[in-house]
Amino acid sequence: MTSIQDFTAKTLAGEELPLKRFEGQVLLIVNTASACGFTPQYKGLEALQKTYGPRGFSVLGFPCNQFGAQESGNETEIAQFCSTNYGVSFPMFAKIDVNGANAHPLYKFLKDEKSGLLGSAIKWNFTKFLVDRAGHVVSRHAPTTTPESLAKDIETLL
């Protein structure tokens, strides 16, 4: 596997979606949770989607329950939460593991491409990976990095 376009992921609706569908787009891939201190970042992620989506950008959200059991809902509950509370319009995928033996292959790839300060493991919810139009991982950002602070990097890639 040489780019994120080589992977597929299941949507919240249960459909397998080839990430090749996002070929040619700049992406921000984020592991999300509905009951986390960083959950309000959904607002900033949606703002990025609205601002840059027309120019070939998309946020991809991957709910994960591995950190403090902060994403305990099922796919229907996650979709309703994101829509009702944050008006999320970007693609959201089925709940996955991002660490450990059952980590989604996409996240194994992302972590191999860009390690964090404490190695390759994802430390917490809302870790962000910025991906260029060719599907290559450009940068990794900590949960404390706000979506808004990535605007300049996104604009550079667009």
Rank of each mutant, 00 (worst) to 15 (best):
G53L: 05
Q66T: 06
K20Y: 01
P143M: 01
V98M: 07
C36S: 14
T144Q: 13
S115T: 12
T39N: 10
A103V: 09
L28Y: 08
G135D: 07
T84F: 12
V88P: 03
V137I: 13
P40W: 00
I29G: 05
S89L: 10
K43N: 12
S83P: 01
K123Q: 15
K108Y: 01
Q66H: 04
F67M: 08
P105S: 01
S115E: 15
F126G: 02
G100M: 08
F81T: 07
I78R: 02
L158I: 14
T51W: 00
L60E: 00
N74T: 10
E77P: 00
V137H: 03
L60D: 00
S139V: 06
N99L: 12
G24K: 00
Y107T: 10
A79M: 02
P105A: 01
C36M: 07
G68S: 10
G61R: 05
K123V: 15
A151W: 05
F109Y: 15
L60W: 00
A33W: 00
F90S: 06
S89I: 03
L48M: 05
V131S: 01
L60Q: 06
A33F: 04
Q66E: 14
S115D: 11
F81P: 03
L48Y: 00
Q80F: 07
G135W: 03
K108L: 12
P91H: 13
F38K: 03
T144A: 15
V30A: 09
L48Q: 02
S83C: 12
Q25I: 01
E148T: 14
L110Y: 04
L130D: 09
C64K: 04
E75S: 15
F67V: 04
L150D: 06
G53P: 03
P18G: 12
A69C: 13
K20M: 09
Q49R: 10
V88C: 07
F62P: 01
P54W: 03
V131K: 01
H104I: 08
Y52S: 09
E46G: 07
W124F: 04
G119A: 08
F129K: 00
E148Q: 15
D132I: 08
S89E: 13
G37C: 11
G61H: 02
K20H: 06
I154L: 09
L117E: 15
P105H: 00
Y42W: 02
V26Y: 00
A101Q: 13
V98C: 09
W124E: 06
S120I: 10
N65H: 07
R55W: 07
H141Y: 12
A103F: 03
A151V: 10
K43A: 15
K111R: 14
V26H: 02
D132N: 14
L150Y: 04
G135F: 06
S72H: 11
Y42A: 09
K152R: 11
A101W: 02
W124P: 13
